[in-house]
Design a protein around this nucleic acid. Sequence first.
DNA 1: TTCCGCCATGGAAACGATTCCATGACATCG
DNA 2: CGATGTCATGGAATCGTTTCCATGGCGGAA
Lengths: 331, 331
Amino acid sequence: MATIKDVAARAGVAVGTASRVLSGSPQTSPDSRARVLAAAAELGYIANGPARSLRRARTDVLGLLVSDIRNPFFSELAHAAEQEARAHGYTVILANANEDAAQADAVLDVFAAQRIDGLLLSPQGPKTPRLEALLASDLPIVLLNRSIEGVVAPLYGTDNAGGVAQALKWLQRRGHRDVAFIGGPETFSTGAERHDAYLAGRAAHGISTDDVLVDAGDFLADGAAEAMLRILDRGALPTAVFGANGQTTLGAMRAVHERLGAEAASLIEFVSFDDVEWFAFMSPPVSAVKNDAPEIGRAGVRGLLALIDGGTAAPQRIATVFIDRSAGGAE
Amino acid sequence: MATIKDVAARAGVAVGTASRVLSGSPQTSPDSRARVLAAAAELGYIANGPARSLRRARTDVLGLLVSDIRNPFFSELAHAAEQEARAHGYTVILANANEDAAQADAVLDVFAAQRIDGLLLSPQGPKTPRLEALLASDLPIVLLNRSIEGVVAPLYGTDNAGGVAQALKWLQRRGHRDVAFIGGPETFSTGAERHDAYLAGRAAHGISTDDVLVDAGDFLADGAAEAMLRILDRGALPTAVFGANGQTTLGAMRAVHERLGAEAASLIEFVSFDDVEWFAFMSPPVSAVKNDAPEIGRAGVRGLLALIDGGTAAPQRIATVFIDRSAGGAE
DNA sequence: TTCCGCCATGGAAACGATTCCATGACATCG
DNA sequence: CGATGTCATGGAATCGTTTCCATGGCGGAA
């Protein structure tokens, strides 16, 4: 593989000059510029990233740590973040923590070894030792989606309260009074925010405040199914179910189908925080609060780049879009 | 950030000795080993990856280029590949090409600059100049999912013929004769293989060989919807629809719903190449050929690592699993 | 014409690790 | 007891780039 030395030799200049030309320094004559560029093209020269990173003490690489890339929210977010980063000349390395603190720490070690210029972090749960160390260092960090106690980094996430309000308005319009709410874990800021917003807003939208109808899972299908069963076991028969995220809605739906059968299930309207395109084909179709995952990813990258450039980054709550698939609603 | 020089100084040894200890060379005394490790721990030393990569002329980084990370097939594959790579001490950088050759080339340039040790490539379409260059170089490469003309790298992909056979068997068991088949582009090896397997196998499974029932989209929802409409416009009224991938099934279903209405649509059974967990709640439930995306990812990484270690890698076709959600079927 | 200053350039240092080579201590074997 | 070999170690070279510093040429101003 050709090095800058080869390029310089072929162009008949010193390596310093070649470097200046290739990195666009103004201190170069048109003559040597032309010769260096020609030589580089002829040799198919591609600068050695590790060598450049070593010397410049920066890598132009961002680390993105998500809890589960298989979750569509994160895969959309990651995709958008990568596009935005590339547009600014940065590369993203993506890693999964699988909702596991030990894996998260292992990944953070790898990131540290790679000397990433900044970190986009979707936190798993409480702070880990490794994370503490990173926060203490001067690595620029932004949080995605979830906040985390005692961490001051700016958060780029969904407007949970706004999203819940959209769902509440829809539930009211559809005339639902007996609404089951399946929340997420209180330990996640997303779970807590949605839960709180629901409890705070339901009365004003004509929804029963009977807490028999409220239970929480773990944001996963199985936990949500159990929560749904608990609600049914308490003798409640809701006319609508509000799932606090996509997996939650899936689990709740599964529980309702298994316990009541497909026919009775078709009398219950589901509304979900998180949208899935297949909702259109459920019976009845499922309406949803759609997260703007791509915009969260882009905003997060922009914020992080601002921090890297020595500026400040303002946290942002990204608005949700309500997808109304009910009989009268227009999608 | 602490360097190996700091570690050596604190341990009272030369940098060479510190390096030997930290990289596990046997040429070290228990005494200096203990002191170096202690010093490293006290300083929170993490080796500078770029410096190490520069000197060793390898990065322990693999590049993974997929066409669209938002596609669940690829997000599952990427997740599994990353886990497998990490278990072997490698980091994965993931990039998206968005089904676009120019973006793919840009990504390959970035990969080349990073000096990745190997490439996992899910090809977009025909070869691009940059890809040609990489193939000509001695970079280890494996292909994922799709093959590509004139490229000799080993392919790790789905057993498309086997998957189609599973679907055909199911269609026969369900007694379907008038089956619509919505294929994918012939220019993708996956599209072509599924199409060919279907045409070759349908007669033996008691399915009509009338080509009025066969059309192809572009593996995306909109293109599939158009293909489905063309079939209906030809006057065909299938009792079952076989979509050649997940997006295709989605589009076909949308077309059927829009054209015939939900009620008539519920008389048509869909079967899909690619599984989606929401299929369970469609009416009727949708059965599917499930790709083992994680295993494809893992096998691809193992093959690539074998190539990197100077060995050879045998291509592999990973078996599919049929998920029968029909009335009589057991999931 | 002389002097000053600018600017392109060459050469070398530096980044942080690995690895080669030479050295010296020590043990083993004849 | 001397020669030989083994082995841990220190020191230095090296990877490919960027950047600093010194130099020399050239133009413009006085």
